[in-house]
Design a protein around this nucleic acid. Structure first.
Length: 215
DNA sequence: TGCCAGGCCGGGT
DNA sequence: ACCCGGCATGGC
C-alpha cells in the first residue's frame, strides 16, 4: 500500500523529524509511556521532572518507595494513584522475573516481550507497543486514538476497526524499519495535535487533504 | 470556561 | 463480546 508511505513522506516533509521518544533512558521511556495514558505530555514532563529531582528514576529507588509516596511525585500527570500502582506493577514484575535488570529484556523476541508486558496490570496494547518500540527499538507499530481518528476520518480505514486491524494495516504495508515505525507514530501524534480534533471534524489545512480518496 | 489529553481496568449487561 | 464509569491534573 504505497499510500501509507506517501502519507509518511508528506508528514515528514511538513513537520520534520520529531525525535521520539523524549527521554534519556529505557526506564524513563517506560515511565513516560505509563504516565502519558490519556494525558497531555506536558503534564507527564512535570511528573518525570519531580521523579528525577527526587532521584526516583531508578528501578531500585522505585522498588523501595511506597506506592503512596510515588503517587505524590507524579500528581501533575493525573490519575496519580492508579498510575503509581502501575509503575509499581512494572517494577515488581521486573524485580521478580528479571532480577531488576532491564537489559535482560533486550534479548527477548518482540512478540514475547509484548505479551509479557501485556500481562502486567496497567499496561495495555498501546503502552506495551510504545515500550517495545521506543524503549527497546523492536519492530512494533504503535496505534493510538489519533491514529484511529485521523485515518478513519480520511477514509483510510473503516469506522469499525479494532486495534490489531489498524496495527496490521501499518505493519503489513510498511517496510520493517524501526526508525520508520518510530517516526511515523510520532508524526501522527504531531498531526493529531494540530488537526482532526475531536470537536473539529473539519481540518481545512490538514496536510493530508487531497489524499483521502481511498477506493 | 469547559473540554480534552500519546489509556486501561473492572464490573455490569 | 461489548459498553461504561472511574481515574485527575493542567493547558488552551
Amino acid at each position: 500500500m504505497r499510500i501509507l508511505k506517501e502519507i509518511y513522506n508528506k508528514l515528514l516533509k511538513h513537520f520534520g523529524q520529531q525525535h521520539w521518544w523524549p527521554g534519556e533512558s529505557q526506564l524513563e521511556i517506560i515511565i513516560g509511556a505509563i504516565l502519558t495514558q490519556n494525558t497531555n505530555w506536558l503534564n507527564v514532563e512535570k511528573a518525570i521532572k519531580n521523579l528525577k529531582q527526587a532521584n526516583l528514576l531508578s528501578i531500585n529507588a522505585l522498588d523501595k518507595m511506597e506506592v503512596d509516596k510515588i503517587a505524590q511525585f507524579i500528581k501533575p500527570a493525573g490519575y496519580y494513584n492508579i498510575k503509581a500502582k502501575r509503575l509499581k506493577n512494572f517494577i515488581n514484575w521486573l524485580s521478580k522475573e528479571y532480577n531488576a535488570d532491564i537489559t535482560q529484556l533486550e534479548s527477548k523476541s518482540t512478540d514475547d516481550l509484548r505479551e509479557e508486558l501485556l500481562g502486567i496490570n496497567g499496561i495495555g496494547m498501546e503502552t506495551a507497543d510504545s515500550i517495545v518500540l521506543y524503549a527497546f527499538n523492536k519492530l512494533s507499530f504503535v496505534v493510538d486514538a489519533y491514529t484511529y481518528r485521523i485515518f478513519s476520518r480520511h477514509n483510510l480505514i473503516p469506522e469499525e476497526t479494532d486495534y490489531y486491524e489498524i496495527k496490521s494495516f501499518f505493519e503489513d504495508n510498511l517496510t520493517d524499519d524501526c526508525n520508520l515505525f518510530n517516526e511515523y507514530h510520532a508524526l501522527i501524534v504531531r498531526l493529531g495535535k494540530e488537526c482532526c480534533k475531536k470537536t473539529k471534524p473539519l481540518c481545512e489545512k490538514c496536510p493530508l487533504n487531497g489524499i483521502n480518496n481511498y477506493p
